[in-house]
Design a binder for these strands. Structure first.
Lengths: 246, 246
DNA sequence: TTATAAAACGTACAAATGACGTTTGTTTTA
DNA sequence: TAAAACAAACGTCATTTGTACGTTTTATAA
């Protein structure tokens, strides 16, 4: 970590998706932006933004995103995807969207490389963070600064597509989970209802969904069978099936 | 179009995929890079690169990519996808990979926003181009400069995934095509063999594959039925099917 | 002991897929 | 002019997968 590239016009922005096992909901981690004018203390902006920062001189893009996530959540080794770059010349040029960095006005064109991360909300300790970070339901977003609403919506679309094609869903689950836990995550992300009986059969038949010699404990009804996901088995058995799905 | 951002460290690079109906092959448009040292005229680089250029001050990223494609091929309105940004700090720092722009050495870190385009090779007139542009089979690429091999391979992977999920294949076909034409494109892109009888049945049953009152002309065997693709019908009937395919 | 409710299993049918064989129709050649 | 050649187009069948439900099991709580 050395210093910032002078006058850098490249940044990373992180869309942090957090799944909350308790509420069974997909959430988004945003930080409060609250700025007053220097002269009359009138509130200029009072909204939320994604976390992002400029890239250090000798830093890879991926590493910059990882660093930003760590600063925000303390987490490392989370699932990460670079999904799009945003760089329209006017994307930071709204009257109210003047960005302040180290007390300097910063409103020239900035290209941001946008990433999304998958985390479990329970893993994040918001009180340890210097930013005013909060979780928001993906379906009830607050007022957002810059073009961050657009970035979020594109990240969400990408996530939905991705979770249908690859087993990233298990990034949001504990090591030991029930079939219904998996269904809950799918339903939260995709915002759909799934037939439990068919879903259960489909999942149980996967070789990489491995039943454990354990059941749920501390539940007030019939405890469910616990399973784990084996990435090894998945990777070994997996060969791209060229199913033309148009 | 105004002037370049001074000391800009952002560029676009274009991966131009071209389908050749005659050879039934997927090709890539690359430009020759040939540089000698100033002192002893030793050949420093003699390889190929993608076309790319820096972004004008008031230009959107997408527009920059479109401009680069037009300068290279004369084509506009081609299918375009921004698929990844590449910006590792050392990506242009190889000894031989010094980039010259307007006779000035340019070797600091540059982030490039990479796009791919789909074109028909027959639409491109290479002689009209000031660059030494050539088509290469996707399976027989020449020596490539910078990190362009990596960029190409990632573009190709993205294309393969994309063409399985969305009907972008028709961007590579004439308005009127036969079922076998479509199969040829899939086989070229995915590098697989498809059973013609099953493929034909599958395609004919799609409502947006519309049979015309026309057949092939000038063929030396039984002329095939011609079809067209209706994007209207596709868009109307299409609702995302949440088929979990893990 | 029984009621409860989620977990887990089962059935029936429709639709899609995969692996083939057969027929059709046009052009070429014998 | 008939036959050969060959791609186009159609057909069959077993298997898998998807969809829509009904039923049984089982641990806990009343």
């Amino acid at each position: 970590m050395t210093e910032l590239i002078k006058n850098s016009n490249i940044s990373v922005d992180c869309v942090v998706f957090g799944y909350d096992t308790n509420t069974k909901s997909l959430n988004l981690l945003l930080i409060k932006r609250y700025l007053e004018s220097e002269t009359d203390h009138k509130v200029l902006v009072d909204d939320y933004v994604l976390t992002g920062y400029h890239i250090y001189e000798h830093e890879k893009l991926d590493d910059a995103a990882t660093r930003v996530l760590k600063e925000l959540t303390g987490l490392t080794n989370q699932y990460k995807k670079q999904f799009k770059a945003f760089g329209d010349p006017d994307r930071l040029r709204n009257e109210k969207d003047i960005l302040w960095i180290d007390n300097e006005k910063f409103n020239f064109r900035t290209v941001t490389i946008a990433y999304y991360f998958l985390v479990k909300t329970e893993d994040v300790d918001l009180t340890h963070n210097k930013n005013q970070a909060e979780w928001f339901s993906i379906h009830q977003l607050p007022e957002l600064g810059f073009d961050h609403k657009k970035i979020i919506l594109e990240a969400y679309e990408d996530l939905k597509t991705k979770c249908l094609a690859e087993p990233i869903i298990f990034e949001l689950l504990p090591n030991k989970f029930t079939i219904n836990d998996v269904q809950d995550v799918y339903e939260s992300i995709l915002d759909i209802e799934i037939d439990n009986r068919n879903f259960r059969r489909k999942l149980i038949n996967k070789k990489y969904i491995i039943p454990l010699d354990e059941k749920q404990i501390g539940v007030s009804k019939k405890p469910a069978q616990l399973y784990m996901f084996s990435k090894d088995v998945y990777d070994k058995m997996y060969e791209k099936n060229y199913l033309i799905n148009i």
